[in-house]
Amino acid sequence: MTEGNFTDYVRIYASSGKGGRGSAHLRREKYVAKGGPDGGDGGRGGHVIIRGNANLWTLIHFKFKKHFRAGHGGDGGKSRSTGADGDDVYMEVPLGTVVRDVETKKILFEVTEDKEEIVLLDGGKGGLGNWHFKSATNQTPRYAQTGIEGKESEFILELKLLADVGLVGFPNAGKSTLLSVITSAKPKIADYPFTTLKPNLGIVEYRDFRSFVMADIPGIIEGAAEGKGLGHYFLRHIERNSILLFLVPADADDVAREYNILLNELKRYNPELLDKERLVAISKSDMLDDELKRELKSELDTQLKGVSYMFISSVAQTGIQELKDKLWDMLNPVEV
C-alpha cells in the first residue's frame, strides 16, 4: 500500500429513507357497493448500513463519495397492498473502523469482524393504511398515516490499523527501512524527520508459509500525547496492535532514555497500551563494535527492567531472522 493511497480519517453525510404513505383506499367492486376500507401500509424507508470488509485496508473510497442517501419507502395500495421498502445503502469499511458522531465526537460503534453489519441510520416507518382505523363507530375511515421522515446526520470514520506488530520509535529510528527489509512493503525512506506521514502496512513472511502483519507508525516526538508533531493522528493506530516493537537507534545518546520517553507518551495517551507485550530492537547496530555492544548490553540489562531487547541492522540484515522468530513466538505463545 502506498502512502498516497492510505486514508484513515473521513467525514461523511448520510440520510435514511422516508417511510411511504399509507393508503386511504375504499374497496369498490361491481357487486360490492360498500366494501369498506382496504388501504395498505406504506413501505419502510431504506436503512444506512455499515458493513465490515476484511479485503479493505483503507478509507480512500470515501474521499470521492461522501454523501449516502437511502431510498424512500413506497406508498401503500388497494387490497391492503403494502408499499415496497426503500433501498438500503451499504457502506463497506475496513476492519478496525471507528464511527463517531460529528457533534459530540462520541464513539458510536467499532467494526471488527468481516461481513459484520450495523445499522447507522434507521429508515422511517411506513404509515398505516385506513383499514387499521376501521371501528364500529367509523366504518369507512377516509384517512391514513403519512410515513415517518428518515434521519440524517454527519459522521466521522476513523481507521485503527488491525496489525499484529506496531513499530514505535522517534523519527529516523529506521522503522521504514526495517519494514522494507522484513516485508514486501515499499515505504518512503529518506534521512529527515517525519519521512513517514501515514502508516504503512506490510506482510512478514515467516517459516512454513506462515505470516503476520506489521505496521510502521509515523515517528513519535515528546508531547505527542498532547497533539504535538503528528499527535493523535497516529497514536490511535497503536491501540489495535498485539505487540509493540520499540525501535531505538544504536547511535542514540541514551537508548534507555529514548525508550522511556516513547513509553511515557503512550502511557499519557492511553495507559492501557502499557498492558501490551513489548520488545525493544536496537537498530543500526552495525555501527557498534563488540566492545561497545557489550557495554550497551550491560547498561540495558539494568535499565530496561526485564523488557526483552535485541540488536538488529536493517542495512546489514543482521538479527532480522532472530527478530522474526522472537515476534512469532510472542504472537503464538506455546501453551504449557
Rank of each mutant, 00 (worst) to 15 (best):
Q139C: 06
D122C: 08
H232T: 00
F212H: 09
F109K: 14
L197C: 02
T140L: 07
I203A: 03
F212G: 04
H132N: 10
Q145I: 06
H232F: 08
G123D: 07
K188I: 09
A215C: 08
R236E: 08
G169E: 02
I189A: 04
A224G: 01
D114K: 13
P171N: 12
E103H: 15
T177H: 10
F170V: 02
V204R: 04
L128K: 04
D164I: 02
H232V: 06
Q145E: 14
L167S: 01
P141C: 07
K186A: 15
A185W: 02
T137I: 06
F170A: 04
P171Y: 02
M214G: 15
E149D: 06
I148F: 13
I107C: 07
I220Y: 03
G126V: 11
S180D: 12
L121I: 12
G127L: 02
A163R: 08
G231K: 01
K198N: 10
D122Y: 13
T104Y: 10
R142D: 14
Y206G: 14
E110N: 11
R100N: 05
P193N: 10
V204W: 04
D208N: 12
E152P: 03
A215V: 05
I238Q: 05
K228M: 00
I156N: 05
K186I: 15
V181D: 10
L108Y: 15
E103N: 14
V165M: 07
L157A: 03
V119S: 08
L121T: 11
T195F: 01
S180N: 15
K125E: 06
L197W: 01
N172H: 05
R100K: 04
I156E: 13
F155E: 11
D122Q: 13
E149C: 04
G169W: 01
I220F: 01
L120I: 03
G147K: 12
T195Y: 01
V204P: 09
H237C: 10
A215E: 00
P141Q: 08
F133T: 05
R207I: 10
K115D: 10
A136L: 14
D101Q: 12
G126I: 02
F155R: 03
E152A: 11
E116F: 09
P193D: 00
E117S: 14
F194R: 07
P199N: 10
K106W: 10
H232E: 02
K106G: 12
S242P: 09
L235G: 05
T177Q: 07
G126Y: 03
A215F: 01
Y192S: 10
L128H: 11
G174L: 05
K115M: 09
H232Y: 13
Y233N: 03
V168P: 01
I238S: 00
G202I: 04
E222G: 09
R240E: 12
G219A: 13
E116L: 05
N138F: 00
I238H: 13
R240A: 05
P141E: 09
A224R: 00
V168E: 07
W131Q: 00
F133E: 11
N172F: 06
G174A: 13
S211F: 11
F155P: 13
S153H: 15
K188W: 01
R207E: 14
G150C: 13
E149G: 12
D216Q: 11
L201M: 06
D114C: 09
G129P: 04
A173L: 14
L201R: 14
G147Q: 02
G166P: 01
A185K: 05
S211H: 06
I217R: 00
V102C: 13
T177Y: 10
E110T: 14
A190L: 09
A225M: 04
D191M: 03
